[in-house]
Write a protein that binds this DNA or RNA. Structure first.
Lengths: 229, 229
DNA sequence: CCCAGATGTTGACAGCGACCACTTAACGTA
DNA sequence: TACGTTAAGTGGTCGCTGTCAACATCTGGG
């Protein structure tokens, strides 16, 4: 057949912002199919360019997926940041943050899995830089909320308290991450009650955390790892 | 044990136990490459069989991966079960179980991701039956350890306590799952200290859980979901 | 003893990621 | 204004993949 898609006006030779177009096509397909197994060619088709055009902007598929993941982290960070803005009480802030964190995962299962699913944790250790930076920001938001008193009382951000903060962050993030993925993969449910579930879980553990934050072994790190030079 | 092992000489026309051979080849490649992006043809090659032979045993790649995942769950269940056998104290049992759970994930990153990564949570809701059954067993082991007093005191397995048990299981599993995946995806570390990390996390949250287990909303379920027929 | 079904093989096909050489347009500089 | 360097897009190709269909070979139950 012919081109059913051809716009009224001729598309200029140069797309204009193909990079962005490809990423957003990827986000579309991702949310439609809930799978990262789409093809670059499919994205090119959607953007109305040749099957090879995307390669001028991404070295390979992994790099494209890294870019998609990065925008996922940006959206998550924005959502968490917005959540805190709606409250003044530190504890309410952290609570709202937790709820929106889980929501972001549940609302975008495939995207959340891509962000954390280790597809990008290649055999070469270390993930793409763009993506790592975005993930770092997310972690920082959680850490900040904890420091500012989200667990009941503020924790001074001094070197002395570093291990304490790390410990709290680890427990808190593990719990959030695990709950989100169990929901996303439908190993717990129902999905519709994810708000209540995260609230229950969060409240249930808060008492323990507030009473005694475990100190972690020296050398422990939390967050995207910098590739060993 | 019908055919002990194919003779070094000419392989007979029929392999003998291709199904098993393919799965174990998959496990090999999985641990070598830490990726599920191997090809069925590669497995066939390793088994010394034509590129299409595997299709007599698995309808498609997804079904093969489901079988791999299932053996992953079986191994995990065995490991957890062995862990409890080494202790008599209920709390020590649950603690050992947690440690071995995390270890299993950290030792087999790609396998753990396959088991929980939602690759098998197809668009059609519901995972393959073999795999679901295996996952169910894992959950049951955790639940049993909790009921028997792993959190400090035994909880009678009565309908009255159902929500309580579910709540404890959810928190406990979320935390384990989240920690494991953060370790596996190298978002926390170092990997070598995963035992200490899981011990810290587990101890850190135990106090809170023991003091007050949150009741979850009615209708909550935990574990592989039976597809709504 | 024989044949039906399970198991394995060969051949084919379209789609994919990735590479190459080529063309087109955009833009700073002379 | 002319130009040439280069980013952006095109078309062709290669080896590989998953899957299907037709055919070959073995094996066990009547």
């Amino acid at each position: 057949m012919s081109k059913p898609q051809a716009p009224i006006e001729e598309r200029p030779y140069h797309h204009g912002d193909l990079q962005r177009a490809i990423v957003s096509a990827a986000l579309e397909v991702l949310s439609e199919t809930q799978s990262t197994e789409f093809s670059l060619r499919e994205l090119a088709r959607r953007a109305g360019v040749s099957h090879n055009a995307p390669y001028k902007h991404f070295a390979d598929k992994r790099e494209l997926l890294a870019a998609v993941s990065a925008t996922g982290f940006e959206r998550l960070a924005k959502r968490m940041s917005d959540a805190t803005a709606r409250h003044s009480n530190p504890r309410a802030r952290l609570s709202a943050m937790a709820r929106d964190y889980v929501r972001h995962g549940v609302d975008n299962p495939a995207l959340y899995r891509l962000m954390f699913g280790g597809y990008l944790t290649g055999p070469d250790d270390g993930r793409p830089a763009i993506e790592r930076a975005a993930a770092e920001k997310t972690k920082a938001l959680l850490a900040e909320a904890i420091i500012k008193g989200g667990l009941g009382s503020a924790i001074a951000n001094t070197p002395r308290n570093e291990r304490k903060i790390t410990g709290a962050l680890l427990i808190y993030w593990s719990l959030l991450h695990g709950l989100t993925l169990l929901l996303v993969d439908r190993l717990v449910g129902p999905k519709g009650k994810s708000d209540e579930l995260s609230e229950s879980v969060w409240q249930g553990m808060l008492d323990g955390l507030a009473a005694r934050i475990p100190a972690l072994p020296p050398g422990t790190w939390v967050g995207p790892r910098v590739p060993a030079k």
